[in-house]
Design a binder for these strands. Sequence first.
DNA 1: CCATAAACGAGACGGTACGTCTTGTCTTTCT
DNA 2: AGAAAGACAAGACGTACCGTCTCGTTTATGG
Lengths: 220, 220, 220, 220
Amino acid sequence: MVKKPAPSTPRRSERSRRAIYDAALALVAEVGYPRTTIEGIAARAGVGKQTIYRWWSSKADVLLEAFLDLSARTGGDGGREPRAIPDTGDLAADLKAVLRATVDQLKDPRFEIPSRALAAEGVVNEQVGREYMTTLLKPAILLYVDRLRAAQEAGQVRADIDPRIALEFFIAPLAQRWLQYTGPISYAYTDTLVDYALGGLAPRTPDVPSGTPGHGSVGP
Amino acid sequence: MVKKPAPSTPRRSERSRRAIYDAALALVAEVGYPRTTIEGIAARAGVGKQTIYRWWSSKADVLLEAFLDLSARTGGDGGREPRAIPDTGDLAADLKAVLRATVDQLKDPRFEIPSRALAAEGVVNEQVGREYMTTLLKPAILLYVDRLRAAQEAGQVRADIDPRIALEFFIAPLAQRWLQYTGPISYAYTDTLVDYALGGLAPRTPDVPSGTPGHGSVGP
Amino acid sequence: MVKKPAPSTPRRSERSRRAIYDAALALVAEVGYPRTTIEGIAARAGVGKQTIYRWWSSKADVLLEAFLDLSARTGGDGGREPRAIPDTGDLAADLKAVLRATVDQLKDPRFEIPSRALAAEGVVNEQVGREYMTTLLKPAILLYVDRLRAAQEAGQVRADIDPRIALEFFIAPLAQRWLQYTGPISYAYTDTLVDYALGGLAPRTPDVPSGTPGHGSVGP
Amino acid sequence: MVKKPAPSTPRRSERSRRAIYDAALALVAEVGYPRTTIEGIAARAGVGKQTIYRWWSSKADVLLEAFLDLSARTGGDGGREPRAIPDTGDLAADLKAVLRATVDQLKDPRFEIPSRALAAEGVVNEQVGREYMTTLLKPAILLYVDRLRAAQEAGQVRADIDPRIALEFFIAPLAQRWLQYTGPISYAYTDTLVDYALGGLAPRTPDVPSGTPGHGSVGP
DNA sequence: CCATAAACGAGACGGTACGTCTTGTCTTTCT
DNA sequence: AGAAAGACAAGACGTACCGTCTCGTTTATGG
């Protein structure tokens, strides 16, 4: 966390920490991130302001931890994201399933508001952005890398593909629609992403050997 | 614009408007978006605060207009984005060229700071977000749609592909890396995106072992 | 006043100034000086804190002005102190009358609490102390000087007496009892002060020409 | 003292008490009374805050005790005030000597700052004020009462004079100049006070024109 | 001669107030 | 009438202390 150097962890009041997390999430959900204030969190949590400043360095920092805590608690074991992307042998189906779950999560208001707030703060505040990336995004990314590598071994993904880049075809378009209102989000949409990405946009040549494969010209 | 109902446009001081744009962009560049204040803009522009509140409704709104103005001026004719994506017949090459130009722009500090600030504000403030989408993103998106449709007509993109979705493979991963620090941005990266997207991640003609996968040329 | 350099007096809100004076005096009377806060004054006056900080530099400063204003208003013309100490020709009677009026004032709670608070602050904060001296004490002192000089001319006070020092016999003991709880305050007490001071503590010699006048020895 | 009910004196740490006294006096001297804080005293003394709150009830209380302790130590035997005002038979000379010593003390910064601070606090906080009166002022007052009574018996002070009131002519003007900046303090000043007070302000024997006014020697 | 209970240092806690900063509105003055 | 200047009510900022409340740790008998 981007937290302060931790004055004396053992003496720390667990009750206050919980109350602060709860208050922060509740306020962000109720009045939005910009109108959530540290004073407001402190008042709502029944806590002195100093108790917040003692342990966190900014509103974004409080919220980041609160959100992480929420994820940890809510997920129980299983967590916010599954431990791994399932591998049924059918890559397309597995990806579609995971993306549908992500769609659900993006539409769950408990997650959406704080998570959007953090993302926004991260865009403008690089420190928070990198923290957000490390803490929330990277774990999910690694799951995709693993699944794609397995698919490569199974011959379902071309061997020369870099999975770290390939996975962006699945998550980046979704992320952009969510963050920048560039389009609606639905199961149909994510399913389409999977199909397009795996199959490619250019026409496949196998069944039309005389057609124009790829985008280069073909001569006899 | 998200501007106020415009009291009486003809009487408006052109000099003040210019000064406000300049001050807003300069301040965002110097101290960052969150520490840019309306008071600061007014002071720097040598303008009364009311003159800002009279014509714009928020800091984001001022900046959005200022940025648009900057784009219009800087681009001269040609503008921030080209009028159209070139069509040399080679879709991959055309896309790579456009994306390289986009990479350059994302790294140009004159554009990067205000545009990142606007994007961030847009993430958290839906009104600004939609405005940003409409004003800055949609025009660019339409260019991609046009080019992809032309490619479809030329048989270089499968006819069953929705260009509106397909184009996200080119811009969304780049946007995500830029906004969320999920990875570095380079020509090589955008080139790879084009190749992966057009060719697909799955092996070509898995069921026609004699075929040539990838998007290289195929000969008899 | 110990006030700030006065940003722009003409634009100043008279209503706010009045409300601040009233709130300050009311709060000091109700909860005492130390528990009177600038935030409290602002809240009670229905005024932003900045409006106080804009025009005054401290709590003591606000209170000093408020008290001066109270004196000016309450006294109507006539003011807190009479324009001059009456001169009936009977110095003792005149002084006793003035001191009795002072006793009344010291016991009037409207004046006592703020005035005690200011005096206390002045003891510890030299700037306030000097301001208090200049603004509140000195005018009264000058009245005594004038009356004593008149008495000197009338032959009722010895010519070699410095009135500036002599007057302290009348006001200092009263001030000390009031400030330091060194004794009760009453008409009888102040009457006694006048008699003792004028007559001297040492026995008078006129009626005992052979006695020991003053405290020097007398030899034939 | 205004101290707490004393939990268990025998176990009390002498070292802490000393350190607290020293820290309190040092801080008051260095940064002034208002900016001396209990936290500061504790930190400087290397003591927990609770150790202060356990034994004293307020900052003023700590300082009062610290000051008393300082007086006791510094004075050695002899103390802050002499055990008694000398009685050489010459009242005026005795009083002048004592007052000169008082002037010295008021100008000794070791005493001045804490003692001014206590006096100020006493003005506004009646409890402290009365404590200050009882502990510091009253003993000195009694010495004056004793000396004046002796003078009455020796016929140097009129028998109808109340010594308790008379002594205020000597100490109150001095106290007021010191506390309220109403004038400078010097030997000449206190000498004058004594002369004026003993001799009276009014001309001697106004009704016996052949008498000799003042306290000079009288010859046949 | 330990045991035990206090006083101790340390410092986190819920609070209050500080003095500063910015917001968005309102008002005054000048052009 | 529009604009600059800027005062205003409001309220959050981050800091400093308040006085209370645990925490272990001395320490100093007293059983």
